[in-house]
Amino acid sequence: MSKKYIADIVPINDEFIGTKAHGQAEFIEDGNNLHIKIEMFDTPANTQHWEHFHGFPDGKDAQIATMVQDINHDGLVDLPETEAVSGTTMVPFDNAPHEMNIPNDNYPVSDAQGHFAYEIDVPLDELQKKFKSVFGTDDLELDKRIIYVHGVSQDLKLPDTVAGVVGSYDAHVTLPIATGKIKVAD
């Protein structure tokens, strides 16, 4: 028997970015397969968009970050500011989610209209095994997770206070542009 989860993805930091990125995600667990489908609209155009689910390893229910989390009051909620309510970055939606290799260049790139569609089948046993080695549990608990879509043009001037450097990737890559709570589908 399969289990279906969905998330309505809404804009964050849109006042500063100038686009209202939005879309929908669908997750279907069926046997040893996790089918992931994400479609986004109005993202910054011609830009690679990191996308992940975030959460708490202890199973605490993650929540969507809002401007309340802008603790340095620079007008943007950056990646570190999301952690208090959304937890840590867990699983990437790249070309190999089950490898959980977060910083890489294998994420979707939006077209000139800011649209992209991502769809992949993931071997659930491999993802659960890797998830357990990193977080101590093999239960993905999708209904306790938050999706974040990240990424703005390198041309966008960000305040010096925006944090989120991951390896050689700067805050332009990690700045959240959209978010959504994953829920069990009706």
Results as ranks from 00 to 15, higher is better:
Val173Lys: 13
Glu26Lys: 12
Ile71Gly: 06
Val77Glu: 10
Val149Asp: 12
Phe41Glu: 02
Glu15Lys: 15
Asp70Ser: 08
Val162Pro: 15
Gly75Val: 01
Ser86Leu: 08
Phe53Trp: 07
Lys4Gly: 10
Gln113Trp: 04
Trp50Ile: 07
Gly151Leu: 03
Ile36Val: 11
Tyr148Thr: 06
Asp74Leu: 12
Asp143Asn: 13
Gly55Ile: 11
Met90Arg: 06
Lys129Pro: 00
Gly167Thr: 04
Asp94Thr: 07
Asp58Cys: 13
Gly114Gln: 02
Glu15Gln: 13
Lys183Val: 13
Pro123Tyr: 00
Val122Gln: 03
Lys157Phe: 12
Ala62Phe: 02
His172Phe: 07
Leu156Ala: 10
Asp105Ser: 14
Leu76Asn: 07
Asp121Lys: 11
Phe41Val: 00
Leu34Asn: 03
Pro103Ala: 13
Tyr5Asp: 09
Leu79Cys: 09
Gly23Ile: 02
Asn104Lys: 08
Ala21Pro: 15
Ala112Thr: 10
Ile182Val: 07
Asn46Gly: 05
Glu26Thr: 10
Phe16Tyr: 15
Ile38Gly: 02
Ile28Arg: 04
Glu26Leu: 09
Ala163Ser: 15
Phe56Asn: 09
Ser86Ala: 14
His150Val: 09
Met67Ser: 12
Val173Asn: 10
Val109Arg: 02
Asp160Glu: 15
Thr174Gly: 06
Gln63Lys: 14
Asp61Pro: 00
Ala62Arg: 06
Asn72Cys: 08
Asp105Tyr: 11
Gln48Gly: 02
Ala45Ser: 14
Val184Cys: 08
His73Pro: 05
His54Trp: 06
Glu51Thr: 07
Thr66Met: 04
Pro159Lys: 09
Gly18Val: 12
Leu175His: 02
Asp78Leu: 09
Gln63Asn: 09
Ile147Tyr: 06
Leu127Lys: 04
Gly151Pro: 15
Gly75Ile: 00
Arg145Asp: 00
Gly151Ala: 09
Ala21Ile: 03
Trp50Tyr: 07
Ala65Arg: 05
Ala163Tyr: 14
Gln128Ala: 05
Ile146Pro: 03
Asp30Leu: 06
Phe56Glu: 06
Ala185Gly: 11
Gly59Pro: 12
Phe41Tyr: 08
Asn106Ile: 00
Leu175Ala: 03
Asp42Tyr: 04
Thr137Met: 04
Ser168Val: 11
Asp160Pro: 12
Gly55Met: 05
His172Ile: 07
Asn13Ile: 00
Ser2Cys: 10
Ile9His: 00
